[in-house]
Computed example of a mutant assay.
Amino acid sequence: MIVVTAPTGNIGRRLVQDLLDTDASVRVVVRNPARLAPGVAERVEIVHGSHSDPAVVAEAFAGADAVFWLVAADRRADDVDAAYSGFTRPVLEAFTAQSVGRVVGISALGRGTPVAGHAGHVTATLAMDDLIADTGVPYRALAMPSFMDNTLWQAGPIAAEGVFYGPNLPNLPAPMVATRDIAAVAARLLRDDTWTGFDEVPVLGPQDLTYDEMAAIISDVLSRPVRYQQIPGEVYKANMTRVGYSEPMAQALLDMALAKNDGLDNGVARTAQNSTPTTFRQWCSDVLKPAVDSL
């Protein structure tokens, strides 16, 4: 039995389908089953509730061979540590009490870099990884750079203004990955019962790109001019609070972006083992273009 937390998000939704395609037995932890992808509810076991609730995870983890762990940080949290470690700490005991065979979690690149200690969401994610690893449960933390899919947040300005914005440097090459490829890596590890201990698994995508190069690819795919505009950190933070982030969580996003500007995502060399297949151009054709064309 494989347990999937956050099964309605970009990664979890694809992961559930990948597992079902291999005839795996799947149990999901979900607050609202109506948000599951069509046809999924009939093929999985459902445990209602939040995976921050000890009673919920005690039920969900019972007899679990493997667990997929993803914390979708509450944008309104009082601070970033509460959003990650605070969410996870109440249920740590369940990993061992329920004799979970192995855990695969969503994490981030940056461990061991000079800026990892002040990288906002990344710093908090790495601290959460340590909590899980300290339980002794076999754990693989998928260490990711930025997601290609985050560009969807700016489909509106891309469509209306031909521009997308951010505090990131326009000319710094960095890795990025598609969520569908993250799901595929997670599915492989969840099905593999041969690994033990704790390790990080970088998932880098196939190439490093600058934001200016991303803009050129988007322009080509959409057949219209699109540019990237770097904005001051305080403007970015104000934009995040305007869309519902608490001040500490908006600051954590800015800290993460600034750490990426200082090389947070550039400390791991790309290899055949940590590269994934979906290029940014392919992702733009498959995902971004339909989203922009629908606006």
Rank of each mutant, 00 (worst) to 15 (best):
G110S: 01
S146E: 15
T210E: 04
V91G: 14
V287I: 09
L70Q: 12
A24N: 02
V201E: 15
G110W: 03
R14I: 00
A215F: 00
D65I: 00
P54F: 04
P175K: 09
S294E: 15
L169P: 01
V201P: 08
E200L: 05
P175Q: 10
Q17I: 08
L204H: 02
G263I: 03
D65F: 03
L264T: 01
G197E: 02
T22C: 05
A133W: 04
L189H: 07
A64Y: 11
D130N: 07
S219Y: 10
R188I: 00
S99G: 09
P33S: 06
A216D: 14
F164E: 08
P248T: 10
R13L: 08
V287L: 04
Q154A: 14
P145R: 14
L19D: 12
A6W: 12
V29W: 11
A124K: 07
F280K: 04
Q154L: 05
D181R: 04
A291M: 09
V100Q: 11
R227Q: 08
D78V: 10
V103G: 11
T210R: 03
S50C: 06
A141V: 11
A83S: 02
V235G: 06
V287C: 09
A94V: 05
R180D: 09
E59R: 12
A257K: 09
L258R: 14
A160H: 10
D212Q: 12
V40R: 02
A55R: 07
G267L: 04
L20V: 06
A184F: 06
A72V: 01
T113G: 08
E42M: 01
S294P: 03
T135N: 08
M240W: 14
M128D: 14
V67M: 03
H51P: 01
T5S: 11
R227S: 10
Q154V: 04
D23C: 00
R224C: 08
R76F: 13
V122S: 09
E213I: 07
Q282T: 10
A6P: 00
G205Q: 06
L258G: 11
A250D: 15
L204Q: 09
G86N: 06
Q98R: 13
T278A: 11
V137E: 14
F87Q: 12
M144W: 10
V29F: 12
R31K: 15
P54I: 03
I11S: 13
Y245N: 10
S219W: 06
A66D: 04
Y211I: 07
S52F: 01
H118G: 02
L295W: 12
T125H: 15
V44G: 07
Y228W: 01
C284D: 03
L92A: 07
T278G: 00
A291R: 15
I231C: 03
Y245M: 13
I11P: 11
N168W: 11
Q154N: 05
S285C: 10
A72I: 00
L288A: 02
T5L: 07
T210L: 00
V104E: 04
T96E: 09
L92P: 07
A58I: 02
E200H: 13
D212P: 01
L295S: 12
R35W: 10
A238D: 15
P225L: 05
T22V: 07
F68G: 02
K260I: 06
V163S: 14
S219M: 04
L70P: 02
I158C: 05
G86L: 05
R227A: 03
P54A: 06
I182N: 09
Y245D: 07
G112I: 00
